[in-house]
Design a protein around this nucleic acid. Structure first.
Length: 1029
RNA sequence: GCCGGUGUGGCGAAAUGGCAGACGCACAGGACUUAAAAUCCUGGGACUAUAAAAAGUCGUGCGGGUUCGAGUCCCGCCACCGGCACCA
C-alpha cells in the first residue's frame, strides 16, 4: 500500500454496492415466459411483473465475453480489459432500455488441472473448483454486471451432458451435397443389394463424426494427439514440446463439408477484416483443375491438382508425395532401393525436422514416366516431400518455369524448364515468373492472357475427359479426440461383428450424461492407452462391448456455451426454442450474439469450430440462425510496464487484486478503458491508474462537503461499524435544486453527446476524457444544480458504477427523494439546441495554415466571413507583401486566404539600391491585395542589396513578356521607358536564367518608383540590352 | 515469401481532408503547510529570434503526388507487431 491518502472511501462503497446488486439480483436477465419478481428494477423500469411473454419484453441485447479458462494463476489484467468493455456496454444498453443478456462461465476442462492430477493424484475437479472460486471472487470484486444465475462451467455434468448430446447429433448426421446441408443419417440411401455390414461401412464413412486411421500429430511429452491448429512450427502450442507424425485411430469431425459455407457466410457478419482474412486463409480455398496423367508403363492414371492449368504445356515432370498410393505401383525395379530409402528417411522425420530442412529440396526418381495429356510428351515421375499427401490429390504436375518450388527442384535435379507464360512487362525474366501473363509455347493457348487460357484449357480437358474444374481447401477435418482424462468422454462403445471386425455404436441419448470413471492414477497406461482405459469396470460393459477411451478436446465445450447461456437451466433440451428465438434473433442487423469480445488467439480455433457446430445445429433445425456471433471485437493485448508481453518469467505480471486494494475497482475499470483503443496492444502503467483515480477523487469532491469528509476520516480511525460511517458524508453546500445556467447545461449536454456517441462506437478512452473535461469545468462552479449532476452520474455509471451509485443515492436522499435504480435509469438524451453557440471561433488561414482565430457569429455567411478575414487587423502582418488570390470559406468552419508574395521585399531592396547610387527615392506603398496580377510569362531583372539580411531574402524581380518587349523597343529607340517589377519565381522555368542589372545612369533622377496595378513602376531610360549581365 | 495491422511530444494517446498534440501520465514553477503527502493554480513539440514579446521556420516513420489546405487521400519505400508458410 502506498502512503498516499485515499481519494475517496471506495473500500466501503464498492463492497456495499456489490452486495446490494447481488441481493436485488439486479442484473438478472429474463427469458420469455419467466417470472419477473415484484420490485425488480428491470420490471419497474419497463412496467413488467409476473410472467412475461416474448412480446412484452423489450428488445434484447446479447453481449458476450469469451469465457476464461480458470487457471491456477488467477486473473491477470488482460482478462478484465474485455470484460470491462462489455460490462460498460451492458450497463449502457440496460439504461438505454434493452433486455441485456450478459453472462459468464468457465471453460474448465483442460490440461493444467490434469497435469496437476498426474503429479499429485488430486482429482482435476477439485483443482478446477478451487480455481473457479478464485476467479469468481476476482471477477465479482470488479463489479461486473453479470447475470450469475446463468453461470456455467463446461465441466458441469448438466452441461457436458449436452455437449455429448451434440456430439451424438454430429455422429448421427451426414452432409448431403444435394441439399447442401447436414441431415439425419437416416436419410442416407444405399444400393438395394447391400447387406447390413456394407451399409454400416458406408454409413460410417459419411457421418459428420467419423473414425480415421490417418497419421496424426502425436506429442509424446503431453501423451496425446493434437489438432493441426494446435501445432505451431512442429511443436505443441501448449508447452512447446516436439510433435511427431504417427498413424492412430482417431475421431474426426467433417468440418471440410462446411468449408464453403464457413467462407461465404463471413460476408454476413461484422468482424474485423483481419480476423475474417485469417479465417479465409485458414480455409484456404483455391480454384483450379484436376487433370489425369496416364502412366507410360501401364494403363493406370495419376490425378493432379493445379491452379494453373494454363501452364500444362510447361509440365516437364511430375511429383508424387512419398505416401502416394501409386508410388509402389510405378517404381521401376532399378529405382526401388532409392525410393524405399527416401521414404524411410522421410518417415523418420518429425514435422519440426521437415520444416527445418525445408530449405533444400529433396526427392528421388521413380523410374516411371507419365504422358502429358496436352502434347503427349513423356515426363519423368519423381517423389519428393515438398508435395504433401494431404492436400489436393497428393500429386502435382511440375511447371518449373512458373512455380518457385518446381523451379528450385528442377534446378537441383537438372530437369528441363520450358517457358509457357510471357510476362506482360518485357523487362521481367520469364524464368521463375509465377504471375499472370500471356501463354506461349502452348499450342492452341498461344497468345491468350492467363485468365482466358485457364478457361480455355479447362473446357478442353473437360471435353476430352482428362479432368475437370476443381476447388480445393487447405482446411482439414477436425481431429476431435484426445488421450486425456479431463474432458468429455465419448458416448460411444465398440463392438465386434460376427466376422470379428470392430465397429462403433452410439449410446442412446437417454444414457447421457456419460460420466468419466474415478481414477487413482491419471497417467496413460503402460501400453500407451489413454487414462480412461485404466478403469476396467467402467471400460468393459456386461454385453462385451468396450467404451471409447478417448475424450473430447477442450474446444468442444466452448463450441456452444453461448447457446446454453440463453437457457442455462433447461433440463429438457440443450436450449429451448423460445430462448433461442428471443436471444439469438436478429436485432435489426444480422442475427446472433450482438457483441462478442475476446482475444485474437481464438481467431481460427474456437471461432471456426463454434461456427461449424452452429451451422450443423442450424441445418438440423435446433437453432434459428446460421451464424452464432454477429459482431466480434478483439481486445488488444496488455503488455507489462516494460512494454514486454506479461509473463511470470519476466516478472512483469500485474495482479488486479493488488491494484484493487490501492485504487479500487472503479479506478481499475476506468484505467483499463482509458489506456487507449480497446483493439490496440498497449503497455500497462500504474501511474496511469493514479490519473483516473485522481479523476474519481475530483468527482467525489465535486459532490462532497469537505468538512464532513474530514469528520468522516477522523471517525473512520476509531469507528466500530464501518457501514454506518458513510452516513457521515454530507453533500457539498453548492449543490442546489436551482436552475442550471446555459453554460452549465452546455457543458453537460456536450458531455452527454460525446459519451453517448463514443459508447456506440466503443471509444471508451475518449468518452472518459469527455467526462474529465466536464468535471474540470464543474469544479469551478459555485452553484452545482442537481439537474446537471444527476445526468452526469448516469454517464459515469457504466464506467464507475460503485461511485456513481453511491453519489446517486446520496443526491436523492439529500433532497428527500427515493433513488430509482441507477442501473435501469433511462439514459440521458442530449439537447442539440443547448449546444448551439451564437459565436464560434473560426480559424483564419493563409495558405492553409492558421494564422489568427476570430470569434464570428454562427450565422455569418460566406461574404461576411470573407470580409471579417480580410479586414482583420491581426491578419495584416500576415498579409504584408502579399496579394490575395483566392478566398476559400466554409461558414462555421474556416476561412483560407490564398496569397502570392508581391514587391514588399523588392521595395526595400530597390530603395537600398538607389541610395547606394546616391539617389534618394520615395517609395509609395503598393496598392496591395486584390488588384495585383502575376504575369503569365516573363524574363527578369535582379536587383542586389548590400544588406546581408536582405541578400538572404533577395528575390528576383522580373518582367512580363509584354513589358520586356516594351522595354526593348523603348530602349532601342532611345526613349525613356518604364520597368514593371513583380516579385516571384520565373513561371516559365521555375529557376533563374536571365539576370539583368539596371545601372544608375539609366534611372531618371527625378523619377520615383510607384506602385501600380501590375507591380512596381520604375522610370528608367536606356537600352534594355545594356542591362543584361 | 504471402496476408493483415501499426508508426504522432519524454510516455499512454486525441484529431467528419480544415487551429496537430484534446484528455491523462511524467516533469518544472507557484499557492497552502513548521515540513511532507494530498489538493489547487500555472507552464510546456523543436528550432531561430528577443530583455521580454511580436514574429518566423520546421514538425505526425522515409520519399514523391493530389489539394487552396494532408496525420488523414493516392503511389513507392522502411521499421515493428500479429497470422500463415513447400497448400501446387
Amino acid at each position: 500500500m502506498s502512503s498516499s491518502r485515499r481519494q475517496y472511501p471506495f473500500h466501503l462503497i464498492e463492497p456495499k454496492w456489490q452486495q446490494t446488486w447481488e441481493q436485488q439480483q439486479a442484473f438478472r436477465a429474463f427469458n420469455p415466459g419467466e417470472e419477473v419478481p415484484a420490485n425488480h428494477p428491470f420490471g419497474v423500469r419497463h412496467g413488467l411483473s409476473g410472467k412475461v411473454a416474448a412480446t412484452q419484453l423489450p428488445k434484447k441485447f446479447y453481449i458476450l465475453d469469451m469465457f476464461p479458462y480458470p487457471s491456477g494463476a488467477g486473473l491477470h489484467v488482460g482478462h478484465p480489459e474485455g470484460y470491462t468493455a462489455t460490462d460498460i456496454l451492458a450497463r449502457y444498453r440496460r439504461a438505454a432500455g434493452f433486455n441485456v443478456l450478459h453472462p459468464i462461465g468457465w471453460d474448465s476442462f483442460g490440461l493444467p488441472a490434469e497435469q496437476y492430477a498426474v503429479k499429485t493424484g488430486q482429482h482435476p475437479r477439485v483443482t478446477t473448483e478451487a480455481n473457479i472460486a478464485n476467479f469468481t471472487r476476482q471477477i465479482k470484486s470488479l463489479g461486473f454486471s453479470y447475470d450469475w444465475s446463468r453461470e456455467l462451467a463446461t465441466t458441469d455434468v448438466e452441461y457436458f451432458k449436452w455437449t455429448q448430446w451434440i456430439f451424438l447429433k454430429l455422429y448421427n448426421s451426414w452432409f448431403n451435397p444435394e441439399t447442401n446441408k447436414a441431415e439425419p443419417i437416416e436419410t442416407l440411401e444405399y444400393p438395394l443389394n447391400w447387406d447390413e455390414s456394407q451399409r454400416r461401412i458406408y454409413r460410417d464413412s459419411k457421418r459428420l463424426a467419423y473414425v480415421s486411421e490417418a497419421p496424426v500429430n502425436w506429442c509424446p511429452e503431453l501423451g496425446t494427439v493434437l489438432a493441426n491448429e494446435e501445432v505451431i512450427d512442429g511443436k505443441s502450442e501448449v508447452g512447446g514440446f516436439p510433435v511427431v507424425r504417427k498413424p492412430m485411430r482417431q475421431w474426426m469431425l467433417r468440418i471440410t463439408a462446411y468449408a464453403e459455407k464457413l467462407l461465404a457466410d463471413l460476408d454476413t457478419i461484422d468482424w474485423s477484416d483481419s480476423l475474417k482474412e485469417m479465417q479465409r486463409n485458414w480455409i484456404g480455398r483455391s480454384e483450379g483443375a484436376s487433370v489425369l496423367f496416364k502412366v507410360d508403363s501401364d494403363d493406370s492414371a495419376i490425378e493432379v491438382f493445379t491452379t494453373r492449368p494454363d501452364t500444362l504445356f510447361g509440365a516437364t515432370y511430375m511429383v508424387l508425395a512419398p505416401e502416394h498410393w501409386a508410388v509402389a505401383k510405378i517404381t521401376t525395379p532399378l529405382q526401388q532401393n532409392a525410393v524405399r530409402d527416401y521414404k524411410v528417411s522421410i518417415a523418420g522425420k518429425s514435422d519440426l525436422d521437415r520444416t527445418e530442412l525445408a530449405k533444400e529440396k529433396t526427392g528421388v526418381f521413380t523410374g516411371a514416366f507419365a504422358i502429358n495429356p496436352v502434347n503427349g510428351e513423356k515426363i519423368p515421375v519423381w517423389i519428393a516431400d515438398y508435395v504433401l499427401a494431404s492436400y489436393g490429390t497428393g500429386a502435382i504436375m511440375a511447371v518449373p518455369a512458373h512455380d518457385t518450388r518446381d523451379f528450385e527442384f528442377a534446378t537441383k535435379f537438372n530437369l528441363p524448364v520450358i517457358q509457357v507464360v510471357q510476362p506482360t512487362d518485357s523487362k521481367t525474366d520469364w524464368q521463375n515468373f509465377t504471375g499472370d501473363g500471356v501463354a506461349v509455347n502452348s499450342g492452341f493457348l498461344n497468345g491468350l492472357p492467363t485468365a482466358e487460357a485457364k478457361k480455355k484449357i479447362t473446357t478442353w480437358i473437360e471435353e476430352k475427359n482428362l479432368g475437370k474444374k476443381t476447388i480445393n481447401y487447405k482446411l482439414r477435418d477436425w481431429l476431435f479426440s484426445r488421450q486425456r482424462y479431463w474432458g468429455e468422454p465419448f458416448p460411444i462403445v465398440w463392438k465386434k461383428d460376427a466376422a470379428g471386425n470392430l465397429y462403433h455404436e452410439a449410446l442412446p441419448e437417454s444414457s447421457l450424461p456419460l460420466l468419466p470413471p474415478s481414477l487413482e492414477d491419471y497417467k496413460p497406461t503402460a501400453d500407451g492407452q489413454p487414462p480412461l482405459a485404466r478403469a476396467k469396470g467402467w471400460l468393459n460393459l456386461p454385453d462385451g462391448s468396450v467404451r471409447e477411451t478417448n475424450t473430447m478436446p477442450q474446444w468442444a465445450g466452448s463450441c456452444w456455451y453461448y447457446l446454453r447461456y440463453t437457457d442455462a437451466k433447461n433440463a429438457q433440451s440443450f436450449v429451448g426454442k423460445d430462448a433461442d428465438n428471443y436471444w439469438m434473433a436478429s436485432n435489426g442487423k444480422a442475427a446472433g450474439v450482438d457483441l462478442y469480445v475476446g482475444g485474437t488467439e481464438h481467431a481460427v480455433l474456437h471461432l471456426l469450430y463454434a461456427r461449424f457446430w452452429h451451422k450443423v445445429l442450424f441445418d438440423l433445425g435446433y437453432v434459428s440462425t446460421p451464424e452464432p456471433f454477429y459482431k466480434l471485437v478483439n481486445q488488444g493485448l496488455i503488455l507489462g510496464e516494460d512494454g514486454q508481453k506479461m509473463s511470470k518469467s519476466r516478472g512483469n505480471v500485474v495482479n488486479p487484486d493488488d491494484v484493487l486494494v490501492e485504487y479500487g475497482a472503479d479506478a481499475f475499470r476506468l484505467y483499463e478503458m482509458f489506456m487507449g483503443p480497446l483493439q490496440d496492444t498497449k503497455p500497462w502503467n500504474t501511474k496511469g491508474v493514479e490519473g483516473v483515480y485522481r479523476f474519481l477523487g475530483r468527482v467525489w469532491r465535486l459532490f462532497v462537503d469537505e468538512k464532513a469528509e474530514t469528520a468522516f476520516e477522523q471517525a473512520e480511525t476509531t469507528a466500530q461499524n464501518k457501514n454506518e460511517l458513510l452516513d457521515l458524508i454530507l453533500l457539498d453546500g453548492g449543490i442546489t435544486d436551482a436552475a442550471a445556467t446555459p453554460a452549465q447545461l452546455k457543458a453537460l449536454h456536450a458531455c452527454i453527446k460525446k459519451v453517448t456517441e463514443d459508447l456506440d462506437g466503443m471509444r471508451f478512452n475518449t468518452a472518459i476524457s469527455a467526462m474529465m473535461v466536464f468535471v474540470n469545468e464543474a469544479m469551478t462552479w459555485q452553484n452545482k444544480p442537481v439537474t446537471v449532476l444527476k445526468p452526469f452520474l448516469q454517464l459515469l455509471a457504466p464506467f464507475a458504477p460503485h461511485l456513481a451509485e453511491e453519489l446517486w443515492a446520496r443526491l436523492h436522499s439529500t433532497f428527500g427523494q427515493t433513488a430509482p435504480s441507477l442501473a435501469y435509469a433511462p439514459w440521458p438524451k442530449f439537447d442539440a439546441a443547448l449546444l448551439v453557440e451564437s459565436e464560434i471561433e473560426i480559424p483564419i488561414q493563409r495558405e492553409g495554415k492558421t494564422k489568427v482565430v476570430k470569434s464570428v457569429s454562427v450565422k455569418a455567411d460566406k461574404t461576411e466571413i470573407e470580409k471579417i478575414a480580410t479586414d482583420a487587423e491581426e491578419m495584416l502582418p500576415h498579409l504584408e507583401d502579399r496579394a490575395i488570390q483566392r478566398i476559400i470559406v466554409q461558414p462555421g468552419r474556416f476561412v483560407n486566404l490564398v496569397t502570392k508574395p508581391i514587391g514588399h521585399i523588392a521595395e526595400k531592396i530597390v530603395q537600398e539600391y538607389f541610395s547606394k547610387q546616391g539617389i534618394e527615392i520615395e517609395i509609395q506603398p503598393p496598392n496591395t491585395r486584390h488588384d495585383i496580377e502575376i504575369p503569365a510569362t516573363g524574363s527578369f531583372v535582379e536587383v542586389k542589396s548590400s544588406i546581408e539580411a536582405d541578400l538572404k531574402k533577395i528575390r528576383p524581380i522580373y518582367l512580363s513578356a509584354a513589358q520586356f518587349e516594351e522595354a526593348r523597343q523603348s530602349g532601342s529607340s532611345g526613349h525613356p521607358f518604364e520597368l514593371h517589377f513583380v516579385t516571384g519565381v520565373n513561371p516559365d522555368t521555375g529557376s533563374f536564367q536571365n539576370h539583368y542589372k539596371i545601372p544608375s545612369d539609366f534611372i531618371s533622377k527625378e523619377a520615383k518608383p510607384m506602385a501600380s496595378k501590375n507591380g512596381w513602376v520604375l522610370p528608367v531610360s536606356g537600352s534594355f540590352e545594356q542591362f543584361k549581365l
